[in-house]
């Protein structure tokens, strides 16, 4: 592998890790902070991706589009759309206990996938949306534009991370943790449980939508394969559990580590004989499933376990 090839591989690796880090941070807001079991991450990712792609892509005879909006406008709209969907779902489902929310959210993601597959006038169906512009693409020459896009993702991850850290230490975060650990007790001291849950759910969904929008603009093509529950919902859950739910750094670490394993094993298995290459992708899924089980049983709290924020005035040594 040449140096240029290797560095562009690293850039691609970093870009995808960043997108997954955002998904993990979003899920951590819902599951780690508030204990909301969202099994339909793909739904919010898809809303973000499709709204951004439709707003920013060129005109097409097949699907809705041709608005040519700049990403600075398309992405916030995409996030708002996912937030609105999350608000509606949250109003209906958040009073339900864990397993019910999991069933309902997986249902929402599936129905959305069916809509995206069937409504060609809107999404291009299985043919998808092509020619989605990538930021910096025409601005800079070949390796630098990709590096600039990676830089943008790193900045966005940093912003979301810092905001989530602030939220974790804030009274808002503390209330969410109280609700997560015992909603009855939290309600008894006067916390508006439904409102707090709804806020965490909507915010998490918006972060997931940002990841979706970034992914659409990164690949420049968006089809139904991009919103497969395996690659969006379940891989993200594995990442958060491995990294450590309830810990924003754990979320980012999990995303980077699992994505590194995922893509490095792809590199490895591509050297296998041809008849094994198609099968190897299933071996990878099998191993990822097994890794999840091992981490759940041996490191139940993940690599970076959750810890409460330092209290004001508390000294470092005491911890």
């Amino acid at each position: 592998m040449t140096l240029l090839g290797f560095s562009s591989y690293l850039i691609a690796l970093g870009t995808m890790s960043g997108i997954y880090a955002l998904l993990c941070l979003g899920l951590n807001l819902q599951w780690g902070f508030a204990g909301l079991f969202n099994a339909g991450i793909a739904a919010f990712f898809a809303i973000g991706a499709y709204v951004a792609a439709i707003l920013a892509s060129a005109d097409s005879a097949v699907h809705l589009g041709g608005f040519g909006l700049p990403v600075a406008l398309a992405w916030p709209v995409a996030m708002a759309a996912a937030g609105a969907l999350a608000w509606v779902i949250g109003r209906i489902c958040l009073t339900l206990q864990g397993d019910y929310l999991a069933m309902a959210s997986i249902g929402i993601a599936e129905v959305l996938r069916i809509i995206i597959k069937n409504e060609e006038w809107l999404t291009g169906g299985t043919r998808g949306i092509a020619a989605i512009p990538r930021p910096f693409e025409t601005l800079l020459p070949a390796p630098w534009n990709n590096l600039a896009f990676l830089g943008l993702i790193v900045v966005l991850v940093a912003i979301v991370y810092l905001a989530a850290e602030r939220a974790w230490a804030s009274p808002w975060g503390r209330s969410l943790r109280a609700i997560r650990d015992s909603d009855v007790a939290a309600a008894a001291i006067g916390k508006n449980v439904a409102q707090f849950r709804l806020e965490a759910f909507v915010l998490g969904a918006m972060v997931m939508a940002l990841a979706g929008a970034l992914s659409a603009h990164y690949f420049k093509f968006l089809g139904t394969t991009a919103i497969e529950p395996l690659m969006v919902t379940f891989l993200v859950w594995v990442m958060l559990i491995v990294g450590g739910s309830g810990n924003n750094r754990g979320a980012i670490l999990g995303a980077m580590l699992i994505w590194l394993i995922w893509s490095a094993t792809e590199l490895l298995t591509n050297r296998l004989p041809a008849e094994w290459i198609t099968r190897s992708s299933y071996i990878r899924v099998l191993l990822i499933g097994l890794l999840l089980q091992v981490v759940l049983q041996k490191f139940g709290k993940g690599l970076l376990p959750e810890k409460p924020p330092r209290l004001v005035g508390e000294r470092r040594e005491t911890r």
């Binding site: 397993d99 395996l230 859950w237 499933g289 097994l290 999840l292």
Partner: peptide, 16 residues
């Protein structure tokens, strides 16, 4: 809910 997460893993493993 921990068992639900474990069942995600079983799902991935069975299918693959």
């Amino acid at each position: 809910i921990v068992s639900v997460i474990a069942s995600f893993g079983v799902m991935l493993m069975l299918r693959s």
